Simulated scan of single mutants.
Amino acid sequence: MGEQLTLEHAITRNALLGILVACAALTLMAVAAPVTTPILMAAFIAAVLRNPVRVLVRWHLPRPLAALIVFLGFLSAVGILAVLVYDPAVRWVGEAPKVISKIEQSLSPIKDTIEEAQDTAEKLEKATELGADNAAPVRVKQTSLLQRVFDTSRVFLAQVAVTLVLALFMVAFSAPLIPPSLTDRFGPRGQRVRASLDEIEWQMSRYMSALAAVNVAVGILTAAAMYALGMPTPILWGVLAAVLGLIPYIGPLIVAVVIGCAAMVTFDTWTAMLMPVLAYVIINLIESELVTPMVLGKVLTLHPVAIFIFVLLWSWILGLAGAFLAVPILVAIVITARNLLLEDGQTLSEVMLRAGGLRPVDRSLVVAGPTPPAK
């Protein structure tokens, strides 16, 4: 019985210690978000581009040259898409007042009810006022909108530049971050760590490449469906579906809402308005329920609740970039745990015990407890 209590106390202690360390690390990353975001985004881009670089290296091209070719191709593709969607995006931004007006007309009964409730609340508040407040109002000096946009744009452009340069370095140089001479000093365990890190890098690259390919296919199908249904600027909706599709749950919801708002302005009948949204929802369901599990299931299976929690957590820490990086970070954590922690059939409890310097005892003693005396 005493051994069982010792095991439970050690597991609880190590679990609490791990939670404290994780909270401290997440807080540090949130505080240092301007520095953390470019590093994580660069690692994500490098993971996607690493497989094409390997293909060119197999064709006997030097790795730096192969990385430069793939990176320039990636930047060219992003630039072409930006040029294609810039004018349509500006057009739809200009249509925003019209969209809002049409939505307000559709929701006018609900709006009238809310306004009546607000008027009633204001009357009750005035009736219960005891006296006027003669204190002088406090005026807060606010920064102009132009200055805020300039400051935000300057920081954003600096982060983009750092992200691209760092991603190019990560792809071009194949030397590991931890040199083999350091891991070899720890004997077989150090060699296993080095082999596990190589496997993590390979699996991450394959997962991210497959995920990017699936989202590109979703974007192409969405653009084709919007074109067939008569929606204007189908390329814009395809790019939006491909990019926001990297954000689980939240991204497809945003795409469906935006397509629905655009359809309300474009068409006059409810059937025509709903068809684009329905087409995108069908494409997204096929991708999420059939294609993605079939393509990525052999690599890694992630729990939907864990994905949702990570999206919320990293959105809070890093903003929009955190929403994009939530799934890659979860994939890296799961692969690291499988390769470096849960080895040789170990359970999580045994790993936590070893982290605390204790040696697990026979499981039969913990489960069954002491043998009862014979009658």
Rank of each mutant, 00 (worst) to 15 (best):
A42Y: 09
P370V: 01
A30C: 10
A47Y: 02
E116V: 14
V90N: 11
A195R: 08
C261A: 13
D87G: 07
P293I: 07
W59T: 04
V85A: 02
K111F: 10
E95R: 11
G345V: 04
D112P: 05
S315M: 13
S364Q: 15
V243D: 03
L177K: 08
L182C: 03
F310N: 13
T12L: 13
L49F: 01
F74Y: 08
A121L: 15
G73C: 15
I103D: 04
M231Q: 13
P328T: 04
T183G: 00
I39S: 01
W237G: 11
T336L: 05
G245A: 05
G230C: 00
R148M: 11
V243P: 05
T36F: 06
T143F: 07
A195N: 04
I11K: 05
I39G: 00
A96V: 13
R206W: 03
W270R: 07
A24C: 14
V218D: 02
F71R: 01
I250E: 05
A15L: 13
P180R: 15
R185M: 15
P293H: 00
P62C: 06
R13K: 10
F44Y: 14
A132Y: 14
Q142N: 06
I286Q: 06
V35P: 06
K141F: 11
A22I: 05
G357Q: 12
K98P: 14
R206Y: 06
A224T: 06
